[in-house]
């Protein structure tokens, strides 16, 4: 188990080190934000995780497009790996956002444009993964999945525009103690966010890489099975 995960991967070691630095910065170095208190520190996890999920969507749509164009297996593997990791990051983004919103906005969820967009995109990429899981394996599955990846990318700006218009018509209800307070941290905040985002980006790349290898092994296995059945069976048998 630990061997296949390749825990000595330089990427993982680097992200672990960076994560240590980030944790120090988050809990020791950066001062407590005056309006929100300790919960504001959730931001240092929430923002990088949200960035990771956006990165996931970006890579899925890019590599889906490349797959439709070049028909190279490699792009399909990259698409499925980043979709799965993107969904994990996206789920975390929604959860951490809700946990932050509860004490600060006094609601778990609200119809704010970014929230709505994130949720709908999350559903689209969950559907992408389910489609892959339900569709019989083969070239057609990869092609159709790539189409969903591209459609998701095209839909993203339209969803954001609609969600924005919608939240103007229905102002989000946020009544918490620090609902519209400006941050009192300024550049300290940016510094910690940068370190944290870097650490999470490395984790993202490590996870995508690990998932990519699994996809590769699956393909190898299918290939091996095909050669083994064709060699062990008498010619002409099916």
């Amino acid at each position: 188990m630990f061997k296949v995960l390749n825990l000595l991967d330089p990427l993982l070691v680097l992200s672990a080190a960076l994560m240590g630095v980030t944790l120090y910065l988050i809990f020791q170095w950066v001062p407590t934000e005056l309006n929100q208190g300790a919960v504001q520190r959730i931001l240092y996890f929430h923002v990088p995780v949200a960035w990771g999920s956006m990165l996931g969507i970006f890579v899925v749509s890019g590599s889906s497009f490349m797959y439709l164009w070049k028909k190279n297996e490699k792009w399909d593997r990259l698409a499925v790996a980043s979709a799965e990791v993107g969904v994990v990051f996206g789920g975390l983004m929604l959860l951490t956002g809700m946990i932050w919103a509860r004490p600060v906005w006094a609601v778990w969820w609200t119809g704010e444009a970014k929230l709505t967009t994130a949720l709908i995109l999350f559903f689209i990429y969950v559907a992408y993964l389910m489609f892959r899981a339900y569709f019989p394996p083969g070239g057609q599955r990869q092609r159709l999945a790539a189409i969903i990846g591209v459609i998701g990318a095209i839909d993203t700006p339209i969803i954001y525009f609609a969600a924005n218009l919608w939240s103007q018509a229905h102002p989000p209800i946020v009544t918490g103690p620090a609902a519209d307070a400006e941050s009192t941290l300024g550049s300290d905040l940016g510094m910690v966010l940068l370190a944290s985002t870097l650490a999470f980006t490395f984790i993202f790349i490590y996870l995508v890489q690990t998932r990519y290898k699994i996809r590769k092994s699956e393909d190898d296995l299918v290939e091996l099975k095909r050669t083994s059945t064709s060699s062990s069976m008498p010619a002409g048998a099916n």
């Binding site: 296949v4 995960l5 789920g91 975390l92 951490t96 932050w100 509860r102 996870l207 998932r211």
Partner: peptide, 25 residues
Amino acid sequence: YLFAVFGITWALFFAYVLYMGTKQQ
């Protein structure tokens, strides 16, 4: 709330890595 966030994030990452490890093995 703060530690709920940290707990959930790390638990999910570990679970996901563990799942991938088992699958690959």
